[in-house]
Design a protein around this nucleic acid. Sequence first.
DNA 1: GTATGTGCAAACTTTTTGCACTTCG
DNA 2: CGAAGTGCAAAAAGTTTGCACATAC
Lengths: 140, 140
Amino acid sequence: MKASVDMIKEKLKECGLKITPQRIAILEAIYTLNNHPTADNIMAYIRKTHPNIAIGTVYKVLDVLVEKGLIKRIKTEKDIMRYDGVLEPHHHLFGSSSDRIEDYSDEKLDKLLKEYFKKKRIPGFKIEEIKLQINGKFLK
Amino acid sequence: MKASVDMIKEKLKECGLKITPQRIAILEAIYTLNNHPTADNIMAYIRKTHPNIAIGTVYKVLDVLVEKGLIKRIKTEKDIMRYDGVLEPHHHLFGSSSDRIEDYSDEKLDKLLKEYFKKKRIPGFKIEEIKLQINGKFLK
DNA sequence: GTATGTGCAAACTTTTTGCACTTCG
DNA sequence: CGAAGTGCAAAAAGTTTGCACATAC
C-alpha cells in the first residue's frame, strides 16, 4: 500500500487532526515500510528526512493515530509495539523463529468464519473482530 | 486447571530442570491465577509464600519455562507480557475495553480450520499453529 | 490569536544482565 | 562436589510525561 501525501493529508483532515510534517512523515513511513514497523523502525526511516524529530513525538503521534483508527497496533509476544497501516480486515503470519510478520488476506476464510460464528454464539461475549494468528515458518 | 505440586515436579523433571521452590511457586501461581497473569501478578501472588523471591528470578524462570514449552507467552498489543499455562490448543477472547483475556476452546472450529488449510496452502509458509484472536466486549 | 502539536529531557515501567552466593542432585 | 539456580542491584530498553516553544488554521 502506497499512499500519496495528498491522501495522507486527506485522512488527517477527516480525523480532525492538524496536518503537520511530522504526522505526514510518520504515516508515510508506516505505509512505505509496510512491514509492521516498531516505533524505532519508524524513527530510523524518518530521520533521513526529518533529522530533528523527537522520539517522544513519534510515540505521541502513533498514539493519536491509533486512537483515531488510522493505524493499528499489532499483538505480538514481544514487549515491543508494532504498527500496521493496513485497515482492511486481514490476518497475520508470524515467523516462529524470526520477527517477521506478514499480512494474510483470505476472503473465503473470512466468509467461512462469519458463517460459523453467525450460528455459534459465545456466551457472555460480543464479537467485534476475528483475527487469525498463523504461527509457522517462512520457507526462505 | 489445577496442578498438584507433584505434577509440577514431574513436569520440571521431564524438562531436565532442577526442582526449586521458586519454580514450583511460579508454576503454581500461573495455574492458580489462571487468568493470563503478568510477571507482576505472579510476583504479587508468590510474595505471600515466598517473600524473598526476586523479580529477576521470576523473569528468568518464566523465560526458561517458555523455552521448555511448559508455559506460553500470549500475544497482546500492550508492552506487558502475559503468560498462559494452558498447553492444549485454544483461542483467546480479548476485551476491547479492558485487559481481560479469556480462553476459548472450540473443537468443531479447529476441525473446520484444519480442513480448510489442508486444501488451502499458503505459499512460502509452513503453518505450525493457528490461533484466533477474538476481539470484542465481555457482557458483564 | 489560540488551540494544537513538537522538541527535549527527565522519569517511569518492564525486562535484562552480571556476579557472588546458595541449592539441588 | 559441581553444575545449575537464585538474589540483589544496577542497567538497559521501550514508553510516557511535563513544560516551554513553535506551528497550523
